[in-house]
């Protein structure tokens, strides 16, 4: 059994981002997607802290502490970039102006419900950030995550057990094992990772998969 590495998975997601898209990349794994967008496509990245047109990391020594992305990494403005305040930034998200968001998740249900902001562990204070605003307004929500938890339990489920971020919002899920669409019939297989067979995929998924 092999499956996709993090970087292969990022490249797989990047293939599905069309030329001319406005895209928000969530913190964690999704930030790697921009490095893999195929040559010749112009994708404009939005970061909710107030920049549209996020460019590459600056050379060492030229970092500007007041020019960061939502993951708090130093960035540069891409050609055509703009800066704005928070209410405008979230108008772009909630108002349906951003085309695609790529997010991490704790759990995704077969009806497209997403859980990615709080667990059931009350010791940890909840931290929602911009996730609920993104899924409320961005028409295409791509989720990028491990297929199972650290303890091997499924993250793709009939119903989420963690508190929801949004109801019926996920478009497609990319895991280390497969790419699955959310359809009215539930999860539908789009792509299997190399070395993974359907029986194995079904055995580590908490809901049925159509092909």
């Amino acid at each position: 059994m092999t499956g996709w590495s993090d970087s292969e998975l990022a490249a797989r997601v990047a293939l599905d981002i069309p030329d001319g898209s406005y895209v928000n990349l969530g913190i964690g794994k999704p930030t790697h997607v921009s490095a893999h967008v195929p040559e010749g496509r112009e994708v404009i990245y939005h970061s909710e802290n107030g920049i549209l047109g996020v460019g590459p990391t600056p050379p060492e020594g030229q970092e500007d502490p007041e020019l960061i992305d939502a993951s708090k990494r130093f960035v540069t403005p891409a050609p055509g970039a703009s800066y704005f305040e928070h209410a405008d930034s979230f108008a772009m998200m909630r108002g349906g102006h951003i085309d695609i968001a790529v997010l991490g998740a704790y759990q995704v249900a077969c009806n497209g419900d997403l859980a990615n902001w709080a667990t059931l562990d009350e010791k940890f204070p909840p931290a929602v950030g911009g996730a609920m605003d993104l899924v409320a307004g961005v028409p295409t929500i791509l989720v990028m995550m491990r297929h199972t938890d650290r303890d091997g339990s499924p993250k793709l489920l009939e119903r989420c057990t963690y508190p929801l971020t949004g109801l019926g919002v996920v478009t497609r899920v990319y895991t280390d094992l497969a790419v699955l669409d959310i359809t009215p019939q539930g999860f539908r297989l789009r792509d299997l990772a190399p070395g993974i067979d359907l029986d194995h995929l079904r055995s580590v998924t908490g809901a049925s998969i159509t092909t």
Partner: peptide, 15 residues
């Protein structure tokens, strides 16, 4: 005490 507010809702409530 802690009140957690979605980020866009926080900005818009303030606005």
């Amino acid at each position: 005490a802690l009140e957690v507010v979605p980020q866009g809702t926080l900005a818009e409530r303030i606005r």
